[in-house]
Amino acid sequence: MASMEKRLQKELLALTKDPPAGVKVDSQRICTNLSEWTVDLEGAPESIYEGEKFQLMFKFGSRYPFESPQVMFIGEHIPVHPHVYSNGHICLSILTYDWSPALSAQSVCLSVVSMLSSCKEKKRPPDNAFYVKTCSKNPKKTRWWYHVLLNKVERNSVNMYEEERPCDMK
């Protein structure tokens, strides 16, 4: 627990000091509860989300960084993206299976921005309606199926969640 706090403090410091492009952290707001962050994202220039603003919510469990944080879009504006469900859940492999303690909030932000930037067409995931109706509140409870793409960063994925969902990760 102590290690988690220390790490979060350092990460927060790093993120506020040196945020990836289009990422903004309100450290004042986070001060009260270090395990829950709200991060402002802005669509990268020259991407189809240019100028759009989104909010990402991070929830860090006590096992962080050995366990991935819970990350999802919140607020009114949720990007229309094939890997982002309308309830804010993100189908991104590093948020579950591919999480590594070497990753950080900063790298997650970078991944999400990159995911948005690489998108060519604004559309919801094909199973959005069903998933939103049946999913758990915690995206980490979803059993995601990831398509491995060529690009390593975009290994992220299309979600082909299973019928049993919501269920625990394998």
């Binding site: 290690s3 220390k6 403090q9 303690p101 070497a102």
Partner: peptide, 12 residues
């Protein structure tokens, strides 16, 4: 320099 080295995971 040595003193500042931290574990990247636990930051200790």
């Amino acid at each position: 320099g040595e003193e500042q080295i931290e574990c990247p995971l636990c930051m200790e």
